[in-house]
Amino acid sequence: MRFASLGSGSRGNATVVQAGSTTLLIDCGFGVAETRRRLGRLGMDLSELTAILLTHEHADHVAGVGAVARAGRVPVWATPGTLAALAPQVGVLPEVHYINCHAPWQIDGLAITPFPVPHDGRESCQYLLSDGAVRFAAVTDLGHTTAHMRTVLAGCDGLLFECNHDRDLLLGGHYPAALKRRVDGDFGHLSNAAAAQFIASLDCGRLKHFAAAHLSEQNNRPELARAAMAGALGCTADWIAVADQDAGLGWCDLA
Protein backbone atom coordinates (compact mmCIF):
# COMPACT_ATOMS: atom_id res chain seq x y z
CA MET A 1 0.00 0.00 0.00
CA ARG A 2 1.25 3.49 -0.86
CA PHE A 3 0.05 7.08 -1.07
CA ALA A 4 0.93 10.26 -2.93
CA SER A 5 -0.42 13.77 -3.39
CA LEU A 6 -1.26 15.35 -6.75
CA GLY A 7 -1.26 18.72 -4.99
CA SER A 8 -2.44 20.20 -1.70
CA GLY A 9 -3.55 23.74 -0.92
CA SER A 10 -6.21 26.33 -1.62
CA ARG A 11 -5.77 26.00 -5.41
CA GLY A 12 -6.57 22.28 -5.55
CA ASN A 13 -6.33 19.03 -3.60
CA ALA A 14 -6.13 15.35 -4.52
CA THR A 15 -4.55 12.39 -2.73
CA VAL A 16 -3.88 9.00 -4.36
CA VAL A 17 -3.93 5.76 -2.37
CA GLN A 18 -3.02 2.48 -4.04
CA ALA A 19 -3.12 -1.13 -2.87
CA GLY A 20 -2.55 -3.77 -5.51
CA SER A 21 -4.81 -3.04 -8.48
CA THR A 22 -7.06 -0.71 -6.45
CA THR A 23 -6.38 3.02 -6.79
CA LEU A 24 -8.48 5.57 -4.92
CA LEU A 25 -8.45 9.33 -5.41
CA ILE A 26 -9.40 11.29 -2.31
CA ASP A 27 -10.85 14.58 -3.59
CA CYS A 28 -10.50 15.93 -7.11
CA GLY A 29 -9.65 19.60 -7.15
CA PHE A 30 -8.01 19.66 -10.59
CA GLY A 31 -9.52 19.49 -14.09
CA VAL A 32 -9.12 16.56 -16.48
CA ALA A 33 -5.96 17.72 -18.23
CA GLU A 34 -4.25 18.74 -14.98
CA THR A 35 -5.31 15.54 -13.21
CA ARG A 36 -3.90 13.49 -16.10
CA ARG A 37 -0.66 15.48 -16.00
CA ARG A 38 -0.24 15.10 -12.25
CA LEU A 39 -1.10 11.39 -12.35
CA GLY A 40 1.50 11.06 -15.10
CA ARG A 41 4.18 12.31 -12.71
CA LEU A 42 3.39 9.24 -10.61
CA GLY A 43 3.50 6.90 -13.61
CA MET A 44 -0.28 6.57 -13.67
CA ASP A 45 -3.19 7.21 -16.02
CA LEU A 46 -6.76 8.31 -15.38
CA SER A 47 -8.00 4.92 -16.54
CA GLU A 48 -6.39 3.28 -13.50
CA LEU A 49 -8.63 5.06 -10.97
CA THR A 50 -11.01 2.71 -9.15
CA ALA A 51 -13.04 5.34 -7.29
CA ILE A 52 -13.10 8.96 -6.14
CA LEU A 53 -13.84 9.67 -2.47
CA LEU A 54 -14.96 13.21 -1.65
CA THR A 55 -14.45 14.86 1.72
CA HIS A 56 -16.65 17.96 1.25
CA GLU A 57 -17.98 20.30 -1.41
CA HIS A 58 -15.50 23.20 -1.36
CA ALA A 59 -14.16 23.99 -4.83
CA ASP A 60 -10.51 23.27 -4.09
CA HIS A 61 -11.56 19.66 -3.38
CA VAL A 62 -14.24 19.06 -6.03
CA ALA A 63 -13.63 21.47 -8.93
CA GLY A 64 -12.67 18.67 -11.32
CA VAL A 65 -14.75 15.77 -10.05
CA GLY A 66 -17.55 15.95 -12.61
CA ALA A 67 -15.30 16.10 -15.65
CA VAL A 68 -12.76 13.61 -14.28
CA ALA A 69 -15.41 11.09 -13.24
CA ARG A 70 -17.05 11.29 -16.65
CA ALA A 71 -13.75 11.11 -18.55
CA GLY A 72 -12.61 8.00 -16.70
CA ARG A 73 -16.03 6.52 -15.92
CA VAL A 74 -15.00 6.61 -12.26
CA PRO A 75 -17.59 6.08 -9.48
CA VAL A 76 -17.84 8.77 -6.82
CA TRP A 77 -18.42 8.18 -3.10
CA ALA A 78 -19.49 10.94 -0.68
CA THR A 79 -21.93 11.84 2.08
CA PRO A 80 -25.47 12.89 1.10
CA GLY A 81 -24.78 16.42 2.32
CA THR A 82 -21.66 16.76 0.19
CA LEU A 83 -23.37 15.37 -2.91
CA ALA A 84 -26.37 17.64 -2.47
CA ALA A 85 -24.15 20.71 -2.04
CA LEU A 86 -22.00 20.04 -5.10
CA ALA A 87 -24.75 18.78 -7.43
CA PRO A 88 -25.34 22.13 -9.18
CA GLN A 89 -21.66 22.56 -10.06
CA VAL A 90 -20.58 19.09 -11.27
CA GLY A 91 -23.34 17.91 -13.61
CA VAL A 92 -24.29 14.26 -14.01
CA LEU A 93 -21.87 11.79 -12.46
CA PRO A 94 -21.51 8.34 -14.05
CA GLU A 95 -21.95 6.42 -10.78
CA VAL A 96 -22.71 7.75 -7.30
CA HIS A 97 -22.54 6.04 -3.90
CA TYR A 98 -23.93 7.69 -0.78
CA ILE A 99 -21.97 6.98 2.39
CA ASN A 100 -22.70 7.22 6.09
CA CYS A 101 -19.72 8.93 7.69
CA HIS A 102 -20.02 6.57 10.68
CA ALA A 103 -20.21 3.34 8.63
CA PRO A 104 -17.09 1.64 7.16
CA TRP A 105 -17.23 -0.06 3.78
CA GLN A 106 -14.86 -1.78 1.35
CA ILE A 107 -13.71 -1.23 -2.23
CA ASP A 108 -11.92 -4.33 -3.51
CA GLY A 109 -9.15 -5.01 -0.99
CA LEU A 110 -9.25 -1.63 0.73
CA ALA A 111 -11.30 -1.12 3.89
CA ILE A 112 -12.48 2.49 4.22
CA THR A 113 -13.43 4.10 7.52
CA PRO A 114 -14.97 7.57 7.12
CA PHE A 115 -15.18 9.89 10.10
CA PRO A 116 -16.80 13.31 10.55
CA VAL A 117 -14.66 16.40 11.06
CA PRO A 118 -15.58 19.93 12.19
CA HIS A 119 -15.44 22.08 9.05
CA ASP A 120 -17.83 24.48 7.35
CA GLY A 121 -18.95 22.05 4.68
CA ARG A 122 -22.45 20.63 4.72
CA GLU A 123 -21.42 17.11 5.84
CA SER A 124 -17.61 17.01 5.93
CA CYS A 125 -15.69 13.81 6.56
CA GLN A 126 -12.21 12.39 6.12
CA TYR A 127 -10.96 8.84 5.53
CA LEU A 128 -8.84 6.09 7.06
CA LEU A 129 -7.87 3.32 4.62
CA SER A 130 -6.39 -0.10 5.31
CA ASP A 131 -5.38 -3.12 3.26
CA GLY A 132 -5.45 -5.29 6.39
CA ALA A 133 -1.72 -4.89 7.05
CA VAL A 134 -1.16 -1.12 7.14
CA ARG A 135 -3.31 1.96 7.78
CA PHE A 136 -3.24 5.37 6.12
CA ALA A 137 -5.32 8.49 6.74
CA ALA A 138 -5.63 11.78 4.87
CA VAL A 139 -6.95 14.48 7.21
CA THR A 140 -7.36 18.11 6.15
CA ASP A 141 -9.97 20.86 6.37
CA LEU A 142 -10.91 20.81 10.03
CA GLY A 143 -11.16 23.65 12.50
CA HIS A 144 -10.37 21.58 15.57
CA THR A 145 -9.67 17.98 16.49
CA THR A 146 -11.91 15.55 18.38
CA ALA A 147 -11.59 12.57 20.70
CA HIS A 148 -13.21 10.40 18.03
CA MET A 149 -10.45 11.37 15.57
CA ARG A 150 -7.83 10.36 18.12
CA THR A 151 -9.42 6.91 18.43
CA VAL A 152 -9.74 6.40 14.67
CA LEU A 153 -6.24 7.57 13.81
CA ALA A 154 -4.30 5.72 16.52
CA GLY A 155 -1.67 3.38 15.13
CA CYS A 156 -1.53 4.68 11.55
CA ASP A 157 1.42 3.71 9.36
CA GLY A 158 1.01 6.81 7.22
CA LEU A 159 -0.57 10.22 7.80
CA LEU A 160 -1.20 13.18 5.54
CA PHE A 161 -2.34 15.84 7.97
CA GLU A 162 -3.37 19.49 7.78
CA CYS A 163 -0.90 22.16 8.84
CA ASN A 164 -2.73 25.07 7.26
CA HIS A 165 -1.32 28.18 8.86
CA ASP A 166 1.02 29.76 11.32
CA ARG A 167 -1.34 31.71 13.56
CA ASP A 168 0.93 34.76 13.87
CA LEU A 169 1.30 34.98 10.09
CA LEU A 170 -2.46 34.61 9.63
CA LEU A 171 -3.48 37.22 12.20
CA GLY A 172 -0.79 39.66 11.09
CA GLY A 173 -1.41 39.13 7.39
CA HIS A 174 -3.51 40.85 4.75
CA TYR A 175 -6.62 38.65 4.88
CA PRO A 176 -9.86 40.53 5.67
CA ALA A 177 -10.93 40.22 9.31
CA ALA A 178 -13.89 37.98 8.47
CA LEU A 179 -11.68 35.54 6.55
CA LYS A 180 -9.15 35.47 9.39
CA ARG A 181 -11.95 34.57 11.80
CA ARG A 182 -13.20 31.85 9.46
CA VAL A 183 -9.77 30.23 8.93
CA ASP A 184 -8.86 30.47 12.63
CA GLY A 185 -12.29 29.37 13.86
CA ASP A 186 -13.56 26.04 15.12
CA PHE A 187 -14.88 25.11 11.65
CA GLY A 188 -12.00 26.47 9.58
CA HIS A 189 -8.46 25.07 9.32
CA LEU A 190 -5.82 23.74 11.72
CA SER A 191 -2.80 25.83 12.61
CA ASN A 192 0.66 24.30 12.86
CA ALA A 193 0.44 24.51 16.65
CA ALA A 194 -3.00 22.86 16.84
CA ALA A 195 -1.90 20.08 14.48
CA ALA A 196 1.26 19.50 16.53
CA GLN A 197 -0.69 19.36 19.79
CA PHE A 198 -2.99 16.69 18.36
CA ILE A 199 -0.21 14.62 16.78
CA ALA A 200 1.78 14.72 20.03
CA SER A 201 -1.22 13.14 21.79
CA LEU A 202 -1.71 10.43 19.14
CA ASP A 203 -0.37 6.87 19.17
CA CYS A 204 2.24 7.16 16.40
CA GLY A 205 4.28 4.08 17.28
CA ARG A 206 3.78 2.53 13.82
CA LEU A 207 4.22 5.71 11.79
CA LYS A 208 6.46 5.31 8.72
CA HIS A 209 5.51 8.44 6.76
CA PHE A 210 4.11 11.81 7.82
CA ALA A 211 3.20 14.54 5.33
CA ALA A 212 2.09 18.04 6.27
CA ALA A 213 -0.70 19.15 3.94
CA HIS A 214 -2.97 22.03 2.88
CA LEU A 215 -0.34 24.64 3.76
CA SER A 216 -1.49 28.20 3.13
CA GLU A 217 0.71 29.92 0.57
CA GLN A 218 0.09 33.28 2.31
CA ASN A 219 0.04 32.27 5.97
CA ASN A 220 2.50 29.42 6.35
CA ARG A 221 5.93 28.24 5.29
CA PRO A 222 7.12 24.63 4.89
CA GLU A 223 9.92 25.11 7.40
CA LEU A 224 7.44 26.26 10.04
CA ALA A 225 5.15 23.28 9.49
CA ARG A 226 8.11 20.88 9.51
CA ALA A 227 9.46 22.32 12.74
CA ALA A 228 6.10 22.08 14.49
CA MET A 229 5.52 18.48 13.44
CA ALA A 230 9.10 17.42 14.16
CA GLY A 231 8.64 18.73 17.68
CA ALA A 232 5.43 16.75 18.07
CA LEU A 233 6.90 13.52 16.72
CA GLY A 234 10.36 13.81 18.25
CA CYS A 235 12.10 13.53 14.87
CA THR A 236 14.28 15.73 12.68
CA ALA A 237 12.53 18.30 10.50
CA ASP A 238 13.82 16.70 7.30
CA TRP A 239 11.84 13.51 8.09
CA ILE A 240 8.59 15.46 7.72
CA ALA A 241 7.35 15.56 4.13
CA VAL A 242 5.26 18.40 2.73
CA ALA A 243 2.52 17.93 0.15
CA ASP A 244 3.17 20.92 -2.10
CA GLN A 245 0.50 22.83 -4.03
CA ASP A 246 2.27 22.55 -7.37
CA ALA A 247 4.70 19.64 -6.98
CA GLY A 248 2.44 17.43 -4.85
CA LEU A 249 4.23 14.57 -3.11
CA GLY A 250 5.72 11.45 -4.67
CA TRP A 251 4.86 7.89 -3.70
CA CYS A 252 5.31 6.98 -0.03
CA ASP A 253 5.40 3.21 0.48
CA LEU A 254 3.82 1.84 3.64
CA ALA A 255 4.49 -1.89 3.23
Rank of each mutant, 00 (worst) to 15 (best):
E123C: 12
F115M: 01
Y98N: 04
H97A: 09
L110K: 00
V117D: 02
V152F: 05
V90M: 08
H144S: 03
P114V: 08
L159R: 08
R167K: 09
L110E: 01
D108W: 08
F136A: 10
L169Q: 15
D108R: 14
A133W: 04
M149Q: 14
I107L: 15
G109Y: 03
C163F: 09
L169R: 14
L142D: 00
D120H: 13
T146C: 07
I107N: 00
P118N: 10
T113F: 07
I99S: 06
R135W: 05
T145L: 04
G143A: 06
V134M: 07
V134E: 09
H97I: 05
D108N: 14
F161T: 05
A137L: 12
L170Q: 06
F161M: 11
T113P: 02
S124K: 02
L93W: 10
D166F: 08
G121L: 08
D157T: 03
L110C: 05
Y127P: 00
W105P: 01
Y127F: 15
D108E: 15
P94M: 14
V96T: 10
H165Q: 11
A154Y: 06
F136Y: 14
G109H: 10
R167T: 11
H148Y: 13
P104L: 03
Y98R: 14
Q106G: 02
A147N: 02
